[in-house]
Design a protein around this nucleic acid. Structure first.
Lengths: 245, 245
DNA sequence: TGGTTTTTTAACCATTTGGTTAAAAAACAG
DNA sequence: CTGTTTTTTAACCAAATGGTTAAAAAACCA
Protein backbone atom coordinates (compact mmCIF):
# COMPACT_ATOMS: atom_id res chain seq x y z
CA UNK A 1 0.00 0.00 0.00
CA UNK A 2 1.11 3.54 -0.63
CA UNK A 3 2.14 5.08 2.62
CA UNK A 4 0.29 8.12 3.87
CA UNK A 5 2.35 10.97 2.61
CA UNK A 6 2.17 14.36 1.06
CA UNK A 7 4.46 14.46 -1.91
CA UNK A 8 5.20 17.44 -4.10
CA UNK A 9 5.66 17.04 -7.81
CA UNK A 10 6.32 20.26 -9.65
CA UNK A 11 4.84 22.18 -6.79
CA UNK A 12 1.54 20.34 -6.96
CA UNK A 13 0.42 18.42 -3.94
CA UNK A 14 -0.63 14.80 -4.18
CA UNK A 15 -1.69 13.52 -0.82
CA UNK A 16 -2.58 10.23 0.71
CA UNK A 17 -3.72 7.32 -1.40
CA UNK A 18 -2.95 7.53 -5.04
CA UNK A 19 -5.40 6.94 -7.79
CA UNK A 20 -3.60 5.43 -10.70
CA UNK A 21 -5.65 6.18 -13.72
CA UNK A 22 -7.38 9.46 -13.33
CA UNK A 23 -6.56 13.09 -12.95
CA UNK A 24 -5.61 13.41 -9.30
CA UNK A 25 -6.97 16.41 -7.52
CA UNK A 26 -7.32 15.46 -3.88
CA UNK A 27 -7.58 19.03 -2.71
CA UNK A 28 -9.26 20.43 -5.76
CA UNK A 29 -5.93 20.89 -7.50
CA UNK A 30 -5.46 19.91 -11.08
CA UNK A 31 -2.52 18.22 -12.70
CA UNK A 32 -1.60 18.90 -16.28
CA UNK A 33 -2.02 16.00 -18.66
CA UNK A 34 1.71 15.84 -19.24
CA UNK A 35 2.50 15.50 -15.59
CA UNK A 36 -0.25 12.98 -15.11
CA UNK A 37 0.99 10.84 -17.93
CA UNK A 38 4.51 10.96 -16.62
CA UNK A 39 3.30 9.95 -13.18
CA UNK A 40 1.09 7.21 -14.55
CA UNK A 41 3.77 5.77 -16.73
CA UNK A 42 6.20 5.84 -13.84
CA UNK A 43 4.10 3.65 -11.58
CA UNK A 44 1.36 2.05 -13.64
CA UNK A 45 2.49 -1.34 -15.00
CA UNK A 46 2.56 -4.75 -13.40
CA UNK A 47 -0.96 -6.14 -13.12
CA UNK A 48 -2.41 -2.70 -13.37
CA UNK A 49 -3.31 -2.55 -17.05
CA UNK A 50 -4.96 -5.93 -17.13
CA UNK A 51 -7.15 -5.08 -14.15
CA UNK A 52 -8.10 -1.75 -15.62
CA UNK A 53 -9.24 -3.46 -18.78
CA UNK A 54 -11.38 -5.88 -16.77
CA UNK A 55 -12.91 -2.99 -14.85
CA UNK A 56 -13.62 -0.98 -17.97
CA UNK A 57 -15.27 -3.92 -19.66
CA UNK A 58 -17.53 -4.54 -16.68
CA UNK A 59 -18.29 -0.83 -16.32
CA UNK A 60 -19.26 -0.60 -19.98
CA UNK A 61 -21.68 -3.45 -19.59
CA UNK A 62 -23.34 -2.17 -16.42
CA UNK A 63 -23.43 1.51 -17.34
CA UNK A 64 -24.81 0.72 -20.80
CA UNK A 65 -27.50 -1.41 -19.25
CA UNK A 66 -28.53 0.84 -16.37
CA UNK A 67 -27.12 4.28 -17.01
CA UNK A 68 -25.11 6.42 -14.64
CA UNK A 69 -27.75 6.71 -11.95
CA UNK A 70 -28.98 3.13 -12.22
CA UNK A 71 -25.57 1.47 -12.08
CA UNK A 72 -24.08 0.43 -8.76
CA UNK A 73 -20.38 0.37 -8.06
CA UNK A 74 -20.80 -2.94 -6.26
CA UNK A 75 -22.48 -4.40 -9.32
CA UNK A 76 -19.62 -3.31 -11.54
CA UNK A 77 -17.14 -4.82 -9.10
CA UNK A 78 -19.09 -8.09 -9.04
CA UNK A 79 -19.29 -8.16 -12.83
CA UNK A 80 -15.52 -7.64 -12.94
CA UNK A 81 -14.96 -10.19 -10.18
CA UNK A 82 -12.89 -7.82 -8.08
CA UNK A 83 -13.14 -5.81 -4.90
CA UNK A 84 -15.12 -2.60 -5.05
CA UNK A 85 -12.23 -0.59 -3.61
CA UNK A 86 -10.27 -1.35 -6.76
CA UNK A 87 -12.69 0.70 -8.79
CA UNK A 88 -11.78 3.71 -6.70
CA UNK A 89 -8.12 2.79 -6.67
CA UNK A 90 -8.01 2.96 -10.45
CA UNK A 91 -10.74 5.45 -11.29
CA UNK A 92 -11.21 7.48 -8.11
CA UNK A 93 -14.98 7.97 -8.37
CA UNK A 94 -18.11 6.67 -10.07
CA UNK A 95 -18.39 9.83 -12.12
CA UNK A 96 -14.80 9.50 -13.35
CA UNK A 97 -15.25 5.86 -14.27
CA UNK A 98 -18.46 6.75 -16.02
CA UNK A 99 -16.78 9.50 -18.02
CA UNK A 100 -14.29 7.06 -19.49
CA UNK A 101 -17.05 4.67 -20.48
CA UNK A 102 -19.23 7.42 -21.83
CA UNK A 103 -16.53 9.13 -23.85
CA UNK A 104 -15.64 5.86 -25.55
CA UNK A 105 -19.29 5.25 -26.39
CA UNK A 106 -19.84 8.76 -27.65
CA UNK A 107 -16.82 8.52 -29.91
CA UNK A 108 -18.10 5.23 -31.36
CA UNK A 109 -21.44 6.88 -31.93
CA UNK A 110 -20.03 9.98 -33.62
CA UNK A 111 -17.25 8.44 -35.69
CA UNK A 112 -19.45 7.41 -38.64
CA UNK A 113 -21.09 10.81 -38.97
CA UNK A 114 -17.76 12.60 -38.69
CA UNK A 115 -16.30 10.27 -41.30
CA UNK A 116 -19.32 11.00 -43.47
CA UNK A 117 -18.84 14.74 -43.21
CA UNK A 118 -15.16 14.43 -44.06
CA UNK A 119 -15.67 11.84 -46.84
CA UNK A 120 -14.61 13.12 -50.27
CA UNK A 121 -16.63 10.61 -52.25
CA UNK A 122 -19.57 11.44 -54.44
CA UNK A 123 -22.78 12.09 -52.45
CA UNK A 124 -24.66 8.85 -53.10
CA UNK A 125 -21.55 6.83 -52.33
CA UNK A 126 -21.07 8.81 -49.10
CA UNK A 127 -24.62 7.95 -48.09
CA UNK A 128 -24.01 4.27 -48.75
CA UNK A 129 -20.79 4.49 -46.75
CA UNK A 130 -22.31 6.05 -43.65
CA UNK A 131 -25.18 3.58 -43.62
CA UNK A 132 -22.82 0.63 -43.76
CA UNK A 133 -20.55 2.23 -41.20
CA UNK A 134 -23.40 2.73 -38.73
CA UNK A 135 -25.07 -0.60 -39.19
CA UNK A 136 -21.78 -2.40 -38.79
CA UNK A 137 -20.83 -0.56 -35.59
CA UNK A 138 -24.29 -0.70 -34.05
CA UNK A 139 -24.88 -4.35 -34.86
CA UNK A 140 -21.84 -4.97 -32.71
CA UNK A 141 -22.72 -2.42 -30.00
CA UNK A 142 -26.48 -2.07 -30.20
CA UNK A 143 -26.81 -0.51 -26.75
CA UNK A 144 -24.76 2.57 -27.63
CA UNK A 145 -27.49 4.80 -29.09
CA UNK A 146 -29.72 4.49 -26.05
CA UNK A 147 -26.87 4.94 -23.68
CA UNK A 148 -25.47 8.02 -25.34
CA UNK A 149 -28.77 9.67 -26.12
CA UNK A 150 -30.04 9.19 -22.63
CA UNK A 151 -26.98 10.45 -20.82
CA UNK A 152 -26.67 13.45 -23.11
CA UNK A 153 -30.27 14.37 -22.53
CA UNK A 154 -29.74 14.04 -18.77
CA UNK A 155 -26.67 16.25 -18.91
CA UNK A 156 -26.27 18.07 -22.24
CA UNK A 157 -22.91 19.52 -21.25
CA UNK A 158 -21.44 16.07 -21.80
CA UNK A 159 -21.43 16.53 -25.52
CA UNK A 160 -20.00 20.02 -25.65
CA UNK A 161 -16.40 18.98 -25.12
CA UNK A 162 -16.76 16.56 -28.01
CA UNK A 163 -17.29 19.43 -30.42
CA UNK A 164 -13.56 19.90 -30.76
CA UNK A 165 -13.44 16.46 -32.41
CA UNK A 166 -11.13 16.21 -35.38
CA UNK A 167 -12.39 18.12 -38.38
CA UNK A 168 -16.07 18.19 -37.53
CA UNK A 169 -16.55 21.84 -38.44
CA UNK A 170 -14.69 21.71 -41.75
CA UNK A 171 -16.35 18.45 -42.73
CA UNK A 172 -19.75 19.89 -41.98
CA UNK A 173 -19.20 22.92 -44.21
CA UNK A 174 -17.79 20.76 -46.96
CA UNK A 175 -20.74 18.39 -46.98
CA UNK A 176 -23.30 21.17 -46.83
CA UNK A 177 -21.70 22.74 -49.89
CA UNK A 178 -21.58 19.38 -51.64
CA UNK A 179 -25.31 18.88 -51.13
CA UNK A 180 -26.06 22.41 -52.34
CA UNK A 181 -23.94 21.79 -55.41
CA UNK A 182 -25.82 18.54 -56.14
CA UNK A 183 -29.07 20.48 -55.95
CA UNK A 184 -27.76 23.16 -58.34
CA UNK A 185 -26.54 20.46 -60.71
CA UNK A 186 -30.00 18.94 -60.74
CA UNK A 187 -28.66 15.70 -59.36
CA UNK A 188 -30.93 15.74 -56.30
CA UNK A 189 -34.06 17.63 -55.46
CA UNK A 190 -34.24 20.67 -53.20
CA UNK A 191 -33.57 19.75 -49.55
CA UNK A 192 -31.95 21.44 -46.59
CA UNK A 193 -28.54 19.76 -46.16
CA UNK A 194 -28.78 19.70 -42.39
CA UNK A 195 -32.15 18.02 -42.53
CA UNK A 196 -30.78 15.47 -44.95
CA UNK A 197 -28.08 14.66 -42.43
CA UNK A 198 -30.67 14.43 -39.68
CA UNK A 199 -32.77 12.07 -41.81
CA UNK A 200 -29.79 9.87 -42.54
CA UNK A 201 -28.93 9.59 -38.87
CA UNK A 202 -32.52 8.96 -37.92
CA UNK A 203 -32.70 6.03 -40.28
CA UNK A 204 -29.34 4.65 -39.19
CA UNK A 205 -29.51 5.08 -35.42
CA UNK A 206 -33.16 5.00 -34.37
CA UNK A 207 -33.78 1.37 -35.33
CA UNK A 208 -31.25 0.32 -32.72
CA UNK A 209 -32.59 2.66 -30.07
CA UNK A 210 -36.13 1.46 -30.68
CA UNK A 211 -35.29 -2.19 -31.04
CA UNK A 212 -36.88 -3.29 -27.76
CA UNK A 213 -40.11 -1.52 -28.64
CA UNK A 214 -40.34 -2.61 -32.26
CA UNK A 215 -39.34 -6.08 -31.33
CA UNK A 216 -42.60 -6.64 -29.45
CA UNK A 217 -44.78 -4.07 -31.18
CA UNK A 218 -44.19 -4.91 -34.83
CA UNK A 219 -41.86 -7.85 -35.23
CA UNK A 220 -43.25 -10.09 -32.48
CA UNK A 221 -41.61 -13.48 -32.88
CA UNK A 222 -39.47 -12.56 -35.92
CA UNK A 223 -35.72 -12.29 -35.36
CA UNK A 224 -35.25 -8.57 -35.43
CA UNK A 225 -31.47 -8.83 -35.57
CA UNK A 226 -31.71 -10.62 -38.88
CA UNK A 227 -33.83 -7.78 -40.21
CA UNK A 228 -31.27 -5.25 -39.02
CA UNK A 229 -28.39 -7.09 -40.68
CA UNK A 230 -29.68 -6.50 -44.18
CA UNK A 231 -30.93 -3.00 -43.55
CA UNK A 232 -27.84 -0.93 -44.34
CA UNK A 233 -28.29 -1.28 -48.10
CA UNK A 234 -32.02 -0.83 -48.00
CA UNK A 235 -31.80 2.29 -45.87
CA UNK A 236 -29.21 3.82 -48.18
CA UNK A 237 -31.52 3.10 -51.11
CA UNK A 238 -34.45 4.58 -49.23
CA UNK A 239 -32.57 7.84 -48.78
CA UNK A 240 -31.15 8.01 -52.28
CA UNK A 241 -34.52 7.17 -53.85
CA UNK A 242 -35.99 10.06 -51.93
CA UNK A 243 -33.58 12.75 -53.07
CA UNK A 244 -32.44 11.69 -56.54
CA UNK A 245 -34.14 13.31 -59.48
CA UNK B 1 -55.54 9.71 10.20
CA UNK B 2 -56.69 6.24 9.43
CA UNK B 3 -56.56 4.21 12.59
CA UNK B 4 -54.36 1.19 12.75
CA UNK B 5 -56.63 -1.61 11.79
CA UNK B 6 -56.89 -4.77 9.80
CA UNK B 7 -60.07 -4.68 7.78
CA UNK B 8 -61.41 -7.40 5.55
CA UNK B 9 -63.14 -6.59 2.30
CA UNK B 10 -64.31 -9.56 0.34
CA UNK B 11 -61.91 -11.73 2.25
CA UNK B 12 -58.93 -9.63 1.27
CA UNK B 13 -56.89 -8.06 3.99
CA UNK B 14 -56.07 -4.37 3.95
CA UNK B 15 -53.96 -3.50 6.89
CA UNK B 16 -52.77 -0.37 8.55
CA UNK B 17 -52.43 2.83 6.60
CA UNK B 18 -54.41 3.06 3.43
CA UNK B 19 -53.03 4.10 0.10
CA UNK B 20 -55.70 5.93 -1.80
CA UNK B 21 -54.76 5.64 -5.39
CA UNK B 22 -53.01 2.41 -6.08
CA UNK B 23 -53.62 -1.27 -5.99
CA UNK B 24 -53.28 -2.13 -2.34
CA UNK B 25 -51.37 -5.26 -1.57
CA UNK B 26 -49.74 -4.80 1.80
CA UNK B 27 -49.08 -8.46 2.30
CA UNK B 28 -48.52 -9.35 -1.30
CA UNK B 29 -52.25 -9.74 -1.88
CA UNK B 30 -53.95 -8.28 -4.90
CA UNK B 31 -57.29 -6.57 -5.17
CA UNK B 32 -59.38 -6.76 -8.28
CA UNK B 33 -59.81 -3.54 -10.19
CA UNK B 34 -63.50 -3.48 -9.45
CA UNK B 35 -63.00 -3.67 -5.73
CA UNK B 36 -60.27 -1.10 -5.85
CA UNK B 37 -62.40 1.32 -7.76
CA UNK B 38 -65.24 0.87 -5.37
CA UNK B 39 -62.94 1.47 -2.43
CA UNK B 40 -61.33 4.46 -4.05
CA UNK B 41 -64.59 6.06 -5.05
CA UNK B 42 -65.95 5.53 -1.59
CA UNK B 43 -63.24 7.51 0.15
CA UNK B 44 -61.30 9.47 -2.46
CA UNK B 45 -62.74 12.97 -2.92
CA UNK B 46 -62.26 16.17 -0.97
CA UNK B 47 -58.80 17.65 -1.65
CA UNK B 48 -57.58 14.28 -2.84
CA UNK B 49 -57.95 14.67 -6.60
CA UNK B 50 -56.35 18.09 -6.75
CA UNK B 51 -53.31 16.91 -4.82
CA UNK B 52 -52.97 13.82 -6.95
CA UNK B 53 -52.91 15.98 -10.05
CA UNK B 54 -50.18 18.16 -8.55
CA UNK B 55 -48.15 15.09 -7.64
CA UNK B 56 -48.55 13.53 -11.07
CA UNK B 57 -47.49 16.70 -12.80
CA UNK B 58 -44.36 16.98 -10.67
CA UNK B 59 -43.59 13.29 -11.08
CA UNK B 60 -43.90 13.55 -14.85
CA UNK B 61 -41.42 16.39 -14.90
CA UNK B 62 -38.83 14.76 -12.66
CA UNK B 63 -39.12 11.22 -14.04
CA UNK B 64 -38.95 12.50 -17.61
CA UNK B 65 -35.85 14.48 -16.75
CA UNK B 66 -33.96 11.89 -14.71
CA UNK B 67 -35.59 8.54 -15.30
CA UNK B 68 -36.75 6.05 -12.72
CA UNK B 69 -33.38 5.48 -11.07
CA UNK B 70 -32.24 9.09 -11.28
CA UNK B 71 -35.38 10.63 -9.81
CA UNK B 72 -35.67 11.19 -6.08
CA UNK B 73 -38.94 11.05 -4.21
CA UNK B 74 -37.89 14.11 -2.23
CA UNK B 75 -37.27 16.01 -5.44
CA UNK B 76 -40.73 15.15 -6.72
CA UNK B 77 -42.24 16.26 -3.43
CA UNK B 78 -40.32 19.54 -3.57
CA UNK B 79 -41.38 20.11 -7.17
CA UNK B 80 -44.97 19.52 -6.11
CA UNK B 81 -44.54 21.67 -3.02
CA UNK B 82 -45.86 19.00 -0.67
CA UNK B 83 -44.61 16.60 1.94
CA UNK B 84 -42.85 13.49 0.73
CA UNK B 85 -45.13 11.23 2.76
CA UNK B 86 -48.03 12.33 0.57
CA UNK B 87 -46.43 10.62 -2.40
CA UNK B 88 -46.65 7.35 -0.54
CA UNK B 89 -50.09 8.16 0.82
CA UNK B 90 -51.44 8.47 -2.71
CA UNK B 91 -49.20 6.18 -4.73
CA UNK B 92 -47.74 3.77 -2.19
CA UNK B 93 -44.26 3.43 -3.74
CA UNK B 94 -41.86 5.01 -6.17
CA UNK B 95 -42.33 2.16 -8.60
CA UNK B 96 -46.12 2.56 -8.53
CA UNK B 97 -45.93 6.30 -9.07
CA UNK B 98 -43.50 5.73 -11.88
CA UNK B 99 -45.79 3.25 -13.56
CA UNK B 100 -48.58 5.78 -13.78
CA UNK B 101 -46.26 8.35 -15.30
CA UNK B 102 -44.69 5.86 -17.66
CA UNK B 103 -47.95 4.37 -18.89
CA UNK B 104 -49.26 7.82 -19.74
CA UNK B 105 -46.07 8.63 -21.63
CA UNK B 106 -46.04 5.32 -23.48
CA UNK B 107 -49.62 5.80 -24.58
CA UNK B 108 -48.83 9.27 -25.89
CA UNK B 109 -45.90 7.81 -27.75
CA UNK B 110 -47.85 4.92 -29.30
CA UNK B 111 -51.11 6.68 -30.11
CA UNK B 112 -49.97 8.13 -33.44
CA UNK B 113 -48.60 4.84 -34.74
CA UNK B 114 -51.70 2.95 -33.65
CA UNK B 115 -53.88 5.58 -35.30
CA UNK B 116 -51.75 5.20 -38.42
CA UNK B 117 -52.21 1.45 -38.52
CA UNK B 118 -55.97 1.81 -38.08
CA UNK B 119 -56.31 4.75 -40.49
CA UNK B 120 -58.47 3.93 -43.53
CA UNK B 121 -57.14 6.73 -45.71
CA UNK B 122 -55.08 6.23 -48.81
CA UNK B 123 -51.42 5.40 -48.09
CA UNK B 124 -49.78 8.73 -48.88
CA UNK B 125 -52.42 10.55 -46.87
CA UNK B 126 -51.87 8.17 -43.97
CA UNK B 127 -48.18 8.96 -44.06
CA UNK B 128 -48.88 12.68 -43.99
CA UNK B 129 -51.27 12.12 -41.09
CA UNK B 130 -48.86 10.20 -38.90
CA UNK B 131 -46.08 12.71 -39.48
CA UNK B 132 -48.29 15.60 -38.44
CA UNK B 133 -49.63 13.62 -35.53
CA UNK B 134 -46.15 12.87 -34.20
CA UNK B 135 -44.65 16.26 -34.74
CA UNK B 136 -47.59 17.92 -33.04
CA UNK B 137 -47.49 15.64 -30.00
CA UNK B 138 -43.73 15.65 -29.66
CA UNK B 139 -43.35 19.39 -30.12
CA UNK B 140 -45.51 19.65 -27.03
CA UNK B 141 -43.85 16.79 -25.12
CA UNK B 142 -40.35 16.54 -26.58
CA UNK B 143 -38.97 14.55 -23.67
CA UNK B 144 -41.27 11.57 -24.24
CA UNK B 145 -39.21 9.61 -26.78
CA UNK B 146 -36.09 9.58 -24.63
CA UNK B 147 -38.02 8.76 -21.54
CA UNK B 148 -39.96 5.89 -23.05
CA UNK B 149 -37.12 4.43 -25.08
CA UNK B 150 -34.77 4.47 -22.16
CA UNK B 151 -37.10 2.91 -19.63
CA UNK B 152 -38.21 0.23 -22.07
CA UNK B 153 -34.62 -0.66 -22.84
CA UNK B 154 -33.89 -0.86 -19.10
CA UNK B 155 -36.89 -3.09 -18.52
CA UNK B 156 -38.41 -4.47 -21.74
CA UNK B 157 -41.29 -6.12 -19.90
CA UNK B 158 -42.77 -2.66 -19.49
CA UNK B 159 -44.02 -2.62 -23.03
CA UNK B 160 -45.50 -6.08 -23.16
CA UNK B 161 -48.69 -5.22 -21.35
CA UNK B 162 -49.25 -2.42 -23.86
CA UNK B 163 -49.60 -4.94 -26.67
CA UNK B 164 -53.26 -5.40 -25.82
CA UNK B 165 -53.81 -1.78 -26.88
CA UNK B 166 -56.96 -1.21 -28.87
CA UNK B 167 -56.81 -2.64 -32.33
CA UNK B 168 -53.05 -2.79 -32.76
CA UNK B 169 -52.99 -6.26 -34.25
CA UNK B 170 -55.81 -5.73 -36.73
CA UNK B 171 -54.47 -2.34 -37.74
CA UNK B 172 -51.06 -3.78 -38.35
CA UNK B 173 -52.37 -6.50 -40.65
CA UNK B 174 -54.53 -4.02 -42.51
CA UNK B 175 -51.71 -1.60 -43.15
CA UNK B 176 -49.31 -4.31 -44.22
CA UNK B 177 -51.85 -5.49 -46.77
CA UNK B 178 -52.45 -1.95 -47.91
CA UNK B 179 -48.75 -1.43 -48.58
CA UNK B 180 -48.51 -4.73 -50.42
CA UNK B 181 -51.50 -3.76 -52.54
CA UNK B 182 -49.88 -0.41 -53.39
CA UNK B 183 -46.79 -2.29 -54.53
CA UNK B 184 -48.86 -4.64 -56.70
CA UNK B 185 -50.72 -1.66 -58.17
CA UNK B 186 -47.42 -0.09 -59.11
CA UNK B 187 -48.18 2.92 -56.96
CA UNK B 188 -45.05 2.51 -54.84
CA UNK B 189 -41.84 0.61 -55.32
CA UNK B 190 -41.01 -2.70 -53.66
CA UNK B 191 -40.44 -2.29 -49.91
CA UNK B 192 -41.05 -4.41 -46.83
CA UNK B 193 -44.10 -2.90 -45.10
CA UNK B 194 -42.64 -3.33 -41.64
CA UNK B 195 -39.46 -1.57 -42.64
CA UNK B 196 -41.48 1.24 -44.12
CA UNK B 197 -43.21 1.65 -40.79
CA UNK B 198 -39.85 1.57 -39.02
CA UNK B 199 -38.51 4.23 -41.38
CA UNK B 200 -41.51 6.45 -40.80
CA UNK B 201 -41.15 6.21 -37.05
CA UNK B 202 -37.41 6.79 -37.25
CA UNK B 203 -37.94 10.03 -39.13
CA UNK B 204 -40.73 11.15 -36.83
CA UNK B 205 -39.36 10.23 -33.42
CA UNK B 206 -35.57 10.24 -33.60
CA UNK B 207 -35.22 13.99 -34.23
CA UNK B 208 -36.74 14.61 -30.81
CA UNK B 209 -34.65 11.99 -29.08
CA UNK B 210 -31.48 13.33 -30.65
CA UNK B 211 -32.31 17.01 -30.23
CA UNK B 212 -29.71 17.67 -27.52
CA UNK B 213 -26.99 16.10 -29.64
CA UNK B 214 -27.93 17.67 -32.96
CA UNK B 215 -28.48 20.98 -31.29
CA UNK B 216 -24.78 21.35 -30.52
CA UNK B 217 -23.35 19.08 -33.18
CA UNK B 218 -25.06 20.39 -36.31
CA UNK B 219 -27.34 23.30 -35.53
CA UNK B 220 -25.05 25.19 -33.12
CA UNK B 221 -26.68 28.55 -32.48
CA UNK B 222 -29.71 27.99 -34.74
CA UNK B 223 -33.07 27.58 -33.05
CA UNK B 224 -33.63 23.88 -33.47
CA UNK B 225 -37.25 24.07 -32.33
CA UNK B 226 -38.05 26.32 -35.28
CA UNK B 227 -36.53 23.72 -37.57
CA UNK B 228 -38.63 20.99 -35.97
CA UNK B 229 -41.85 22.97 -36.34
CA UNK B 230 -41.77 22.89 -40.12
CA UNK B 231 -40.47 19.36 -40.40
CA UNK B 232 -43.70 17.35 -40.41
CA UNK B 233 -44.49 18.19 -44.03
CA UNK B 234 -40.94 17.84 -45.21
CA UNK B 235 -40.52 14.44 -43.56
CA UNK B 236 -43.75 13.18 -45.09
CA UNK B 237 -42.52 14.34 -48.50
CA UNK B 238 -39.17 12.69 -47.87
CA UNK B 239 -40.87 9.36 -47.28
CA UNK B 240 -43.36 9.62 -50.12
CA UNK B 241 -40.66 10.74 -52.56
CA UNK B 242 -38.71 7.67 -51.65
CA UNK B 243 -41.42 5.09 -52.28
CA UNK B 244 -43.60 6.57 -55.00
CA UNK B 245 -42.96 5.41 -58.53
C1' DT C 1 16.39 -14.10 0.24
C1' DG C 2 14.75 -9.75 2.14
C1' DG C 3 13.25 -5.25 1.58
C1' DT C 4 10.24 -2.25 -1.29
C1' DT C 5 6.53 -1.04 -4.08
C1' DT C 6 2.22 -2.16 -6.28
C1' DT C 7 -2.15 -4.52 -6.13
C1' DT C 8 -6.05 -6.40 -3.73
C1' DT C 9 -9.10 -7.07 0.05
C1' DA C 10 -12.33 -6.92 4.20
C1' DA C 11 -14.15 -3.92 7.25
C1' DC C 12 -15.80 0.58 7.86
C1' DC C 13 -18.10 5.17 7.48
C1' DA C 14 -21.15 9.04 6.34
C1' DT C 15 -24.79 10.17 3.54
C1' DT C 16 -28.61 9.39 0.82
C1' DT C 17 -32.87 7.32 -0.03
C1' DG C 18 -37.35 4.95 -0.12
C1' DG C 19 -40.51 4.28 3.05
C1' DT C 20 -43.17 4.56 7.83
C1' DT C 21 -45.46 6.50 11.78
C1' DA C 22 -47.90 9.23 14.97
C1' DA C 23 -49.79 13.36 15.45
C1' DA C 24 -51.53 17.88 13.70
C1' DA C 25 -54.47 20.32 10.52
C1' DA C 26 -58.21 20.63 7.49
C1' DA C 27 -62.57 19.18 5.71
C1' DC C 28 -66.77 17.31 6.62
C1' DA C 29 -71.28 15.65 8.65
C1' DG C 30 -74.98 16.10 11.84
C1' DC D 1 -70.44 23.54 17.58
C1' DT D 2 -68.71 18.84 17.97
C1' DG D 3 -67.26 14.45 16.83
C1' DT D 4 -65.43 11.93 12.77
C1' DT D 5 -62.92 11.22 8.69
C1' DT D 6 -59.59 12.72 5.34
C1' DT D 7 -55.40 15.16 4.29
C1' DT D 8 -50.91 16.84 5.48
C1' DT D 9 -46.76 17.13 8.05
C1' DA D 10 -42.33 16.53 10.84
C1' DA D 11 -39.62 13.19 12.69
C1' DC D 12 -37.92 8.75 12.12
C1' DC D 13 -35.89 4.31 10.42
C1' DA D 14 -33.48 0.62 8.01
C1' DA D 15 -31.22 -0.44 3.93
C1' DA D 16 -28.42 0.86 0.23
C1' DT D 17 -24.64 3.31 -1.65
C1' DG D 18 -20.37 5.84 -2.86
C1' DG D 19 -16.32 6.17 -0.86
C1' DT D 20 -12.19 5.36 2.64
C1' DT D 21 -8.77 2.94 5.27
C1' DA D 22 -5.45 -0.12 7.12
C1' DA D 23 -3.64 -4.25 6.39
C1' DA D 24 -2.72 -8.48 3.63
C1' DA D 25 -1.08 -10.44 -0.65
C1' DA D 26 1.41 -10.30 -4.78
C1' DA D 27 4.90 -8.60 -7.72
C1' DC D 28 9.24 -6.70 -8.13
C1' DC D 29 14.04 -5.83 -7.40
C1' DA D 30 18.70 -6.07 -5.40
Amino acid sequence: MVKKQEAFFGGIKINKYTCINQTVKPNGLFLTNGLINWLNMARMEKKSLETQAIILKAAKKIFAQKGLSGARMQEIADEAGINKALLHYYYRSKEKLFEQVFDAALKKMLRPVIAFLADDSELFQKIRNICHHYYSVLLEFPFIPNFVINEVSTDPTRIIKMMELEGLLEGKEKTIQQVEQCIKDGKIREIDPKELIWNILSLCVFPFASKPIFSVLIYEDQDINEVLKGRADRVADFIIDSIKI
